[in-house]
C-alpha cells in the first residue's frame, strides 16, 4: 500500500503547490490546507503502515503483546495537524486583512511594502 499512497501524496503535494502558485489570494488558503495534509501523510506513510495494531498497551500488560504501529511519527503528526490549523487561521487572518486594506485579490499586486 505504501508505494500507492506515495504516489497519491505526491499528487496532493502537486495540487497544493499548484494552488499556492495561483494569483488569486483565496486559492492560497486552499493550497495551504492541501499542502499540510500532504506533508503530514509524508511522515505517516514513510514510517511504514500497519493495519489494526494501534500503539496501545492492553489492560494488565506492561508492553504491547505484538508489534504495534510506530507511535513516534504519530505523535509528530498529531501536533503538526494542530499547528497547521493554527497556521491556517493565521493565513486566513492575513488574507482577510490584506484584502480589506489593499482591496485586491491578485497576489502579483502585492510586490512592494508600501500600499
Amino acid at each position: 500500500m505504501e508505494p500507492f499512497l506515495a504516489v497519491v501524496v505526491g499528487g496532493l503535494f502537486a495540487a497544493g503547490l499548484y494552488m499556492i502558485l495561483r494569483r488569486s489570494i483565496v486559492k492560497l488558503l486552499i493550497g495551504l490546507v492541501l499542502l499540510s495534509n500532504a506533508a503530514n501523510l509524508v511522515i505517516f506513510v514513510t514510517a511504514g503502515l500497519h493495519r489494526g495494531v494501534p500503539p496501545l498497551v492492553p489492560e494488565g500488560a506492561s508492553a504491547p503483546l505484538h508489534t504495534v504501529a510506530d507511535p513516534l511519527p504519530q505523535a509528530l503528526v498529531l501536533t503538526a495537524i494542530v499547528i497547521s490549523f493554527g497556521v491556517l487561521a493565521f493565513a486566513m487572518a492575513l488574507v482577510h486583512r490584506t484584502h480589506a486594506m489593499v482591496k485586491t485579490d491578485d497576489i502579483n499586486d502585492l510586490t512592494s511594502t508600501d500600499s
Binding site: 494542530v82 490549523f85 493554527g86 487561521a89 486566513m92 487572518a93 482577510h96
Partner: peptide, 12 residues
Amino acid sequence: VLGVASTVVLVL
C-alpha cells in the same frame, strides 16, 4: 488548544 480555537473562531 481550546483558547486558541475559540480566539480564532471569535476573531475571524
